[in-house]
């Protein structure tokens, strides 16, 4: 009985060890949480379209691109350079095996000689054949329409490369160095344009689109095809646009104008 009374009585002093421990825990928690709070703040302030970290991708959004070929110069490859820089793609002087996420394609009509140049990359199809054929489900489409490869479950079978009508995918044929933390890659797996998903999730635009408007012809427009008020939706509604190999019925998210 006497022992019980003693325990319930508050001690007049305090335990310095315990207090020190609690402060350390509080500080550590603060340090751990701060970037998240900061990121939340930044993304929130940058754009209304940014996805809140940790929240699910919404199918109310469909990211897409509209490329105006009248503004795309055949000599310009700023989009390609920007993509390589952003995602850390380095050539090894072996064009047949080096990865290319975006490339410039010159198209010529053999009967008339008329020629055009256009950027070609993963077309982020609504019904992507690469996703259909992938045995492990590593090729997948996010709810917002971005087609990606899960680098942890890709076994490097390359069936997606056989299935893609756009030749948009590359197989990583060698060991990699100096990777970008936001664009992880892996030898022996397949990869392609991610639509700069790390930028898009933070409310930004793909690097190619940014480069095209900064130093190129401003031919590329990125936006939400499901938002009727977005610039891309309005332009797609107003002007005739084309999808490449539309006959295949894959409904690519990348559209071209003046093709």
């Amino acid at each position: 009985m006497s022992i019980k009374t003693e325990k319930s009585t508050p001690t007049p002093g305090f335990d310095p060890v315990r207090r020190k421990f609690l402060s350390a825990v509080a500080a550590a928690a603060g340090v751990a949480l701060a970037p998240g709070v900061m990121l939340y703040g930044i993304t929130k302030s940058n754009s209304a379209a940014a996805r809140v970290s940790g929240s699910a991708v919404s199918s109310n959004v469909r990211w897409g691109m509209l490329i105006d070929l009248n503004r795309c110069d055949s000599g310009c490859d700023d989009c390609v350079t920007a993509c390589s820089k952003e995602n850390g793609l380095q050539g090894h002087g072996r064009p047949a095996t080096d990865a290319q996420w975006i490339r410039k394609v010159d198209v010529t009509n053999p009967q008339t000689g008329a020629s055009q140049s256009l950027p070609m990359m993963c077309q982020h199809c609504a019904d992507p054949p690469c996703v259909d054929v992938c045995p492990t489900g590593a090729s997948f489409k996010r709810a917002d329409g971005i087609v990606l490869v899960n680098k942890h479950t890709c076994i490097g079978c390359r069936y997606c490369m056989m299935a893609c009508p756009y030749k948009a995918r590359s197989f990583i044929h060698e060991s990699l160095e100096d990777q970008k933390p936001h664009a992880p890659r892996g030898k022996g797996t397949v990869e392609s344009c991610t639509l700069c998903v790390h930028r898009v999730d933070a409310g930004g635009q793909p690097a190619c689109v940014e480069a095209c408007s900064d130093t190129g012809g401003g031919a590329m427009l990125f936006g939400d095809l499901k938002d009727p008020d977005s610039e891309i939706s309005q332009r797609v509604a107003k002007y005739a646009t084309q999808q490449i190999r539309a006959d295949l019925g894959l409904d690519p998210g990348v559209r071209y104008r003046n093709l």
Binding site: P95, V107, N109, P110
Partner: peptide
Amino acid sequence: GMEVSSSF
């Protein structure tokens, strides 16, 4: 029906 060329 078209002719194409690229670095890829």
